[in-house]
Design a protein around this nucleic acid. Structure first.
Ligand SMILES: [Mn+2]
Ligand SMILES: [Mn+2]
Ligand SMILES: [Mn+2]
Ligand SMILES: [Mn+2]
Lengths: 219, 219
DNA sequence: ATAATTTTTTAGACAAACCTAAAAATTAAT
DNA sequence: ATTAATTTTTAGGTTTGTCTAAAAAATTAT
């Protein structure tokens, strides 16, 4: 099934607001997120209900059907992959990407997304650490560890950064630390709580407690 | 000025059909290119005329104003850059890219296009050899030479390929010949009209007359 | 339990893009 | 120069997505 630009935004909004669960989503919540009026939401919910993409009951709220959920996930997947592209390849800052991805997510081509995914090295999550659904619409969440808590000798893939200030991002850029990089703990220094790590088995650097507190890895 | 998705397609179509000149474009020509009905074209031409983007006179045809032309060029630039991206980075075949670029050209972000351009190495033309307008909307055409006619010792940048059959593209791929590569003529062999060339000053290969007849370079 | 407030839906309107069918203008043929 | 054929425009209509204002339902407060 193919959807219009607007339908896609609504489906994704319901998915985001219900956080993947069965939770009922209210008209006002959607109106605020999508910056439209409540009346517009009601109109669209009735339309999506007729199309079998949502279950909508007057005054009660709305939930996605399985079909609707799969559509929403596909759009989210595209959104997140484009965000990775913008940051990793075009060197955008994390705060500049959402608006552009909001447009790019509507490009209609399955093969394009397959190739983009592959080109980006099948990333696990977007720059904000949101897990990217795979091509089958499954969301495989791997447990994440705060770098501070990782034992000596352990390595993992950097999969999220908690602080997304420009200053921190610049620090990471300078040290060649990026999402998807392999980080290995060589030695933990008790005295100042810093640690020596390698990036992609190459550079060995020392990172302070302030840094390790803001990096999450998946094993 | 920002335009709707549809307006952009019409502006680009007028530009393509008038080939950058002042030539009047007919309603039917546009209807065919855009796969719509003549009546829809008339509607839109009246609208674009009111907006000052085209000069339209009943039954006479339409031309772009300077403003309209600049808009058209910007859209074309985006279209062509995305096509380069699809071929060079995502490894699409030349025949698969136009439809996707037709969508991507409407993404609205100046900085995105600047960065994409830079990421792609400021390409001179798209995979079909169409020159990409620069950021100021200027189209700088460099003279192009058929590889067959290039003298020994000369080198240039591959800027167009005449035959875009799958077979030829596969041949080029296998030999690491790609758009933007530097090709240098080492020796021209009179006997079979083939020539020895280097690609990016690295590989030295022999290419036959059939190949040199289909490659264009800029000095 | 009533009243006041908030949320949600309906009713009615509008702009953007398209369409078909009919009318008008242009161009080509006799 | 008429007539015939083609092109282009107009008139009227549809779908999509939005809006405002008013009505209805649900929620909260007294
Ligand atoms: Mn986002
Ligand atoms: Mn969007
Ligand atoms: Mn194209
Ligand atoms: Mn287009």
């Amino acid at each position: 099934m193919k959807h219009t630009h607007a339908e896609e935004n609504y489906l994704k909004a319901i998915y985001m607001l219900s956080e993947g669960e069965e939770r009922l989503v209210s008209t006002t919540a959607m109106a605020e997120l999508l910056r439209t009026r409540a009346a517009s939401i009601t109109d669209m919910m009735q339309k999506l209900h007729h199309k079998g993409l949502v279950v909508y009951r007057k005054y009660q709220g709305v939930t996605l059907t399985e079909t609707g959920k799969q559509s929403a996930i596909k759009i989210l997947r595209k959104h997140l992959l484009w965000e990775v592209f913008l940051v990793e390849k075009l060197k955008f800052g994390w705060n500049e990407i959402h608006e552009i991805a909001e447009q790019l997510e509507h490009i209609d081509s399955d093969i394009l997304i397959d190739r983009l995914d592959h080109f980006l090295g099948n990333p696990y999550c977007n720059p904000h650490g949101i897990v990217i659904p795979n091509a089958d619409g499954k969301i495989v969440t791997k447990p994440r560890l705060l770098m501070t808590d990782v034992a000596e000798g352990t390595s993992g893939i950097i999969s999220a950064i908690k602080d997304d200030s420009v200053a921190f991002l610049q620090y990471l850029g300078k040290r060649n630390i990026y999402l998807g990089a392999k980080m290995t703990v060589i030695e933990k220094i008790k005295f100042d709580e810093s640690m020596d790590v390698t990036i992609d088995n190459q550079y060995k650097i020392n990172i302070s407690r302030k840094i390790t507190d803001n990096i999450l890895i998946t094993l």
